[in-house]
């Protein structure tokens, strides 16, 4: 496929993911729209272009793993898994409801396609590193991708893992940092500054690629470049807009963990549908 066709397809996919995210959270009455929307273009690129995976065989040993360490973006993961065929779209509307496989945070025992149960920040990042290490031990060629948040970088465990992954030269590990700049209590820079991010990751021995996390060409190029890096892990720092795609959610702190009400949901769905 030509690059142009690819980006066109990914644009359609991410539009679908955003639509589903809003509908799921709106119907659930709770959830985290902001950080789901911000990473939608990255996640669409992974599931619908870059990852080696098979929805008919979610436990395939040689699959690439994609870990959602920022587990609160679960609606995004669920929307992507449904769109990729792991389960029926109808299941999406059970998000957060009693007996649903779509728990508030991803649960590997309830939903095939979830690589590790996550939600408590920092944990998924370490677990992804463990999967990459297991791949090295078993001499497998799968790659491990892990999505972390910018606020999540305030967790000490992130840096334990950062040190570990470069020490063990895990070049099959690729982190993607969803740098949307906001967290629950306000702007990341006010709550607890994480900058200089690139310098931090470089100092920990990682290859760093900085991109616009809404530009498909940049996302694709970064993932492909990461594949060629040898002897160290790669961190793609993706500058994103929290709430991206819904005008009244963009860069609004409150929509980190607040569901749209009925009216807001309808408006947001309309906006997404009409976007080009």
């Amino acid at each position: 496929m030509e690059r142009e066709e690819v980006t066109k397809l990914l644009k359609e996919k991410s539009k679908q993911l955003r639509y589903d995210i809003i509908k799921m959270i709106g119907l659930a009455g709770s959830g985290h729209p902001g950080g789901s929307l911000s990473a939608a273009d990255i996640v669409a690129t992974l599931y619908f272009y870059h990852l080696r995976h098979d929805f008919r065989n979610p436990y395939w040993e040689d699959r690439d793993r994609f870990v959602f360490s920022k587990g609160h973006a679960a609606p995004l993961l669920y929307a992507a898994l449904a769109e990729a065929g792991y389960f029926s779209r109808e299941v999406l509307w059970t998000l957060r409801k009693f007996n649903s496989p779509l728990q508030g945070h991803p649960d590997m025992r309830k939903l095939p396609g979830v690589e590790i149960s996550a939600g408590s920040l920092g944990h998924g990042f370490s677990a992804a590193c463990g999967m990459a290490l297991a791949g090295k031990i078993d001499k497998k060629d799968y790659r491990v991708f892990v999505l972390i948040g910018d606020g999540e970088c305030q967790e000490g465990e992130i840096w334990e893992t950062a040190m570990f992954a470069s020490h063990y030269k895990l070049d099959n590990l690729c982190g993607i940092l969803d740098y949307n700049g906001l967290q629950i209590d306000g702007p990341v820079s006010k709550v607890m500054e994480v900058q200089p991010l690139a310098a931090k990751w470089q100092a920990f021995g990682w290859e760093v690629i900085e991109i616009d996390g809404h530009d498909f060409n940049q996302i694709i190029d970064a993932l492909e470049k990461a594949r060629t890096v040898k002897g160290k892990p790669t961190m793609i720092i993706a500058r994103t807009i929290k709430g991206k795609g819904v005008s009244f959610m963009e860069n609004v702190v409150d929509f980190h963990g607040k569901a749209p009400d009925r009216e807001q949901m309808e408006q947001a769905l309309k906006e997404i549908k009409e976007s080009d």
Binding site: A128, C129, G135, M163
Partner: peptide
């Protein structure tokens, strides 16, 4: 098959969890 984790027990436990998902 031995992984020295350094003085970082939190990372070690989650690493082990990730490795365990790969059949170990």
């Amino acid at each position: 098959r031995f992984i020295e984790c350094g003085i970082a027990e939190q990372n070690m436990m989650d690493l082990a969890a990730g490795i365990a998902t790969c059949g170990k």
